[in-house]
Computed example of a mutant assay.
Amino acid sequence: MQLVVARIGRAHGIKGEVTVEVRTDEPELRLAPGAVLATDPPSTGPLTIATGRVHSGRLLLRFEGVADRTAAEALRNTLLIADIDPEELPEGEDEYYDHQLMDLDVVTEDGTEVGRITEISHLPSQDLFIVERPDGTEVLIPFVEQIVTEIDLEEQKAVIAPPPGLIDDRAEIDSSRDSDSAKDES
């Protein structure tokens, strides 16, 4: 199975290094020197990582055969793809690879069907499930333990406890004005 593990950003310096947007929880494993990665577009790869280092909070990689800034800049926006065993599991107990979560049925704790996970968006603050409802609309579910209470890979479902308004239009809004005006009317 192939997974996107990074996207190449701009060139850094003049010796062929590039910044990368990491898309894996295991960069030390997937983006280590010696790793051979497929690419999208396929014509730019495969690429073998020669060196890697962190500079000012960003991962910098240099690839074999990429010796200058011009060659590095030509790789910009290329996706780096790693081959992994589909049976391989992440190290953490409550961690999942995207491919394990894709197409899971999403249900509420009382068993109400919400939809199916069609995409996972990795944002800086948290991950989001993009869930397609039976009527074709989409709902965004934050992948946090207060909302996603259970992932059951055997049953192929994700159980959620959504706060009011997350999956329906019936948000409960507490307003101090409402309670104050009710007191004034008395």
Rank of each mutant, 00 (worst) to 15 (best):
T118D: 12
P124W: 03
I120Y: 05
D127N: 14
T149M: 08
P124C: 04
T118K: 13
D105E: 14
T108I: 09
V144D: 08
T112P: 00
T112Y: 06
T118V: 15
I141E: 05
P142A: 08
V148Y: 01
L104P: 04
D105M: 11
E109Q: 11
I130E: 12
E132P: 05
S121R: 15
L140T: 13
E113V: 10
Q146R: 14
E109F: 00
G115H: 03
I120R: 10
E109A: 14
V144N: 06
E145G: 07
E132D: 10
T149C: 07
L128A: 07
V107W: 01
I120C: 08
E132G: 07
G136I: 07
V114S: 02
E109S: 12
G111D: 01
I117C: 01
I141W: 02
D103R: 11
D105A: 15
T118H: 09
G115F: 05
S121C: 10
D105W: 06
P142R: 04
F129R: 00
R133N: 01
V148S: 03
L128N: 09
G115V: 05
E113I: 08
I130L: 14
E138I: 14
T137G: 11
I141V: 15
T118I: 15
R133C: 05
Q126F: 11
L123W: 11
R116Y: 00
V139F: 05
T137R: 14
E145L: 10
D110Q: 10
Q146F: 09
I117M: 05
D103S: 12
V144L: 12
T112D: 12
F129A: 06
Q126E: 13
S125C: 09
T149I: 12
M102K: 10
E145Q: 13
L128S: 05
T137C: 04
D127Q: 13
V148Q: 02
D103N: 14
I130C: 07
V106L: 00
P142G: 08
V114A: 00
E150W: 02
F143P: 01
E145A: 12
F129S: 02
S125A: 14
H122P: 07
I147E: 04
F143M: 13
P134I: 07
G136D: 03
D103V: 01
G111L: 00
D110V: 10
I147P: 01
V139R: 08
V107E: 10
T118C: 09
V107C: 04
L101H: 01
M102F: 09
V144T: 14
P142Q: 07
E119H: 13
F143D: 11
V114Q: 02
S125H: 12
V139C: 08
L123D: 14
I120A: 09
L140E: 15
I141F: 04
V107G: 02
F129Y: 00
Q146H: 11
R133E: 05
E138T: 15
